[in-house]
């Protein structure tokens, strides 16, 4: 990650989405296996394999262990995931023998709504009195991914629409209502350890389990992040700044996305 000033791309040369994806990829360093959701998590996990973590084992809920896609999958059923995998198993097997058995280090999730304890709603949104609930896609694999992986990373864009004071529905438990809740519920993994957004990184305070702002992306202010969060976001005593993207990271991400587009 060290580089000279001459090599470093200037701030205008990347987007906030690129910052988010690159930092999400970096967060996978140290993991052996990752259970990957389609969308932002899949992009980040594939970027990790092309940058700092070529040996990362990607596991998709469609039943692939060790996929090495040459482009981003169009959907969870993309044959590319099966053709490049070490093994292809059935959907019951992936959830029971591999996920539930506690064999996977990191669960990597997106979300529609997140609260201060990193609980997730992907089911319904309350649109106010006299209006029908708005439908979201639903749970998918998330409840058991968050329960059974060693730890959970989340990646989503930062806005008051996504980071809410109270969830309209708890689809997937992060840290419940605070310390001790995961143990009480019998959720075996450590739960969410980082929420990576286009503005920075939130991590749970070990004492309270509440998400606090620990890192800002270059050029982002604490005030910006607090304004984009639906609760009174706490800020760590020392807030770090994430390393700017390297030229290699940006090139790898753009090549990955270009390969995905040409496949459509």
């Amino acid at each position: 990650m060290t580089q000279t000033a001459q090599q470093a791309p200037a701030a205008a040369e990347w987007t906030s989405d690129e910052l988010m994806t690159i930092n999400a990829a970096r967060a996978l360093v140290g993991a052996r296996t990752v259970f990957v959701g389609i969308g932002l998590p899949s992009t980040a996990a594939n970027l990790a394999r092309r940058t700092a973590h070529p040996d990362l084992v990607l596991i998709y809920e469609s039943g692939t262990l060790g996929s090495k896609p040459t482009r981003l999958p169009l959907s969870i059923g993309d044959g590319e995931l099966a053709d490049t995998a070490d093994a292809v198993v059935s959907v019951p097997e992936i959830f029971n023998y591999w996920l539930q058995a506690g064999r996977i280090d990191v669960g990597f999730l997106g979300a529609a709504q997140v609260d201060r304890y990193a609980n997730i709603n992907t089911t319904i949104v309350d649109r106010g009195p006299d209006k029908p609930e708005g439908r979201l896609p639903g749970a998918g694999g998330a409840p058991e991914i968050a329960a059974n992986c060693g730890r959970v990373l989340m990646v989503l864009r930062h806005s008051t629409r996504n980071f809410v004071k109270k969830l309209d529905f708890v689809t997937t438990v992060g840290h419940g209502s605070g310390p001790g809740d995961r143990e009480r519920l019998g959720l075996r993994g450590a739960g969410p350890v980082a929420v990576i957004t286009d503005l920075g990184i939130l991590r749970p305070d070990p004492a309270t389990s509440e998400l606090v702002l620990t890192d800002l992306h270059p050029g982002v202010t604490v005030a910006q992040v607090r304004a984009a969060t639906g609760w009174d976001l706490k800020v760590a005593d020392t807030v770090a700044t994430t390393e700017p993207p390297t030229a290699d990271e940006l090139a790898a991400l753009r090549a990955l996305q270009a390969a995905g587009r040409s496949a459509t």
Partner: peptide
């Protein structure tokens, strides 16, 4: 039987 749904509103 599975380990699932714990704490979820589902």
């Amino acid at each position: 039987v599975l380990r699932g749904y714990r704490g979820s509103d589902i």
